[in-house]
Amino acid sequence: MTQATATIHVVDDDESLRTALMRLLRAAGYAIRTYASAGDFLLNKPENAPGCVILDVRMPGPSGFELQEAIAKLDESLPIIFLTGHGDIPMSVRAIKAGAVDFLTKPVRRETLLQAVRTALAGSAERCATRELLHSLRSRYESLTPREREVFARVVSGKLNKQIAGELGTCERTVKAHRAHVMEKMQLTSVAELVRAADQLIGAGITAMAR
């Protein structure tokens, strides 16, 4: 996840401003795409690409806030920076509460904008990394057999092999073998790591693990 592959999406109905932002951000070394409206963005944005959105509040058609909601629903890892011609406190509170990285007003200083972009892209990178991690955890978890998942659940809830064998009605040696398979398939080396992976899986709602 580097700056080179991240794209900054500028959504603003003012062509002159769009062009100016594009020139500036391009000169600062970013990849830029511009859109004249919220609809334009939703129709033409690339899928699942890292980056961030610089969004005007007032636009013909859906407003910046409405687009922010739509982006949140799409579960994209696209942090939003608002850039408005006229902002007030209620507007900025609304934007930040809905998860915007920053709420800036035009005209915006270069450093302020670039700082916000850096923060947003870092956030985006982090979200992408998390998502990727979850994705791989999930596929690894899905490669476990039902029996191994049962053992997994009992190991992370702190049970001893002997107790697990008793609960599953099998011998301790079999549990030990399952346990080794789980660690191997999950590509983990310690019980502590396994517990954290289980937390992440539960947190992402991937599995409802019986504890």
Binding site: S16, T105, K106, P107, R110
Partner: peptide
């Protein structure tokens, strides 16, 4: 602010 923003960024 629209034109001012464009001027500054340009």
């Amino acid at each position: 602010n629209q034109p001012l923003g464009a001027i500054l960024s340009n």
